[in-house]
């Protein structure tokens, strides 16, 4: 079996380019606008989408995503809205859900994966699920043919990299630096070192996230990674825009510029 996400990386490898993966929390800035924004991201050139499940205690997120999650939670975004968003977006591009662990545990692992499948989602990114705690998750994602994407960091030992790479499907999420989400002036040099270390262990796709916001940075990362993940930069454009139209058009333009820089030169 393969998911739409698996197929994407087969194609981008053939095309000798990286995939652009755009992130937005469900329900941000509102439920209808999150769907129109995600659609614009795809029209601009995003190859895949990460839908964030907003959570009350996002310890891996910096101020931009925290504020967006808060705004979404104030409108009572929950599993219903998250899966409604998956359903709307998955026909347009491979779609995964990025979520802290507790919302999955509360919803029920099996039920979560069944809903994922029903709505056309490829799988989930679980940034605070350690492999030690994931045996049930691995069994169920296996059974229900869902991608399970773990996150690794520059501080991850080679021993652990092996285990995490083994357990991951879809892609391996390489956090570019030691820190939280947000825009940064430059992409940490640690990112390429980490990707090189993963390459020595596996040929599974590797996508780099944390701190990528400009086409220049994206181009740099696209030279060595299979995927480039951009989140805070899109959110900031919406936060800064005075109208829905302005937000949508800025988001589409950024996605377009980023997509142009996925080529390997």
């Amino acid at each position: 079996m393969s998911t739409p996400l698996d197929d994407l990386f087969v194609n981008t490898r053939k095309e000798n380019r990286a995939a652009l993966i755009g992130f937005l929390p469900a329900g941000f800035p509102t439920q209808p606008r999150s769907i129109s924004t995600l659609t614009a991201m795809i029209q601009g050139g995003c190859d895949a989408i990460e839908i964030g499940f907003p959570y009350s205690d996002p310890v891996m997120d910096g101020p931009i995503i925290q504020a967006a999650s808060d705004q979404s939670l104030k409108q009572r975004t929950g599993s219903r809205e998250v899966f409604a968003t998956v359903k709307a977006i998955a026909p347009l591009a491979p779609t995964v859900v990025m979520t802290y662990w507790n919302p999955i545990e509360r919803y029920g692992v099996t039920k979560f994966l069944e809903s994922m499948k029903e709505n056309g989602g490829s799988g989930a990114i679980t940034p605070d699920l350690t492999i030690e705690e994931s045996s049930h998750w691995i069994e169920e994602t296996q059974r229900l043919e869902s991608n399970r994407i773990f996150v690794v960091a520059p501080s991850t030992s080679d021993d652990r990299l092996k285990k995490v790479a083994e357990a991951s499907t879809g892609f391996i999420y390489a956090a570019s630096l030691m820190g939280v989400t947000g825009t940064r002036a430059s992409v940490s040099t640690g990112a390429q070192t980490l990707v090189d270390r993963i390459r020595r262990i596996t040929d599974k796709p590797v996508a780099v996230g944390l701190g990528v916001s400009t086409p220049e940075q994206a181009h740099e990362v696209a030279q060595y990674a299979d995927g480039v993940i951009v989140g805070s930069a899109f959110i900031r454009l919406i936060q800064e825009s005075k109208s829905e139209e302005e937000g949508i058009s800025k988001v589409k333009n950024l996605a377009h510029a980023l997509a142009q820089s996925m080529k390997r030169s």
């Binding site: 310890v59 891996m60 662990w101 507790n102 940034p127 605070d128 699920l129 350690t130 030690e132 705690e133 773990f150 996150v151 690794v152 960091a153 520059p154 501080s155 991850t156 030992s157 652990r160 995490v164 956090a175 030691m178 820190g179």
Partner: peptide
Amino acid sequence: GGRFVPEALIAA
């Protein structure tokens, strides 16, 4: 119990 944390903290 256990550990539900970002991978970046595991080494520490």
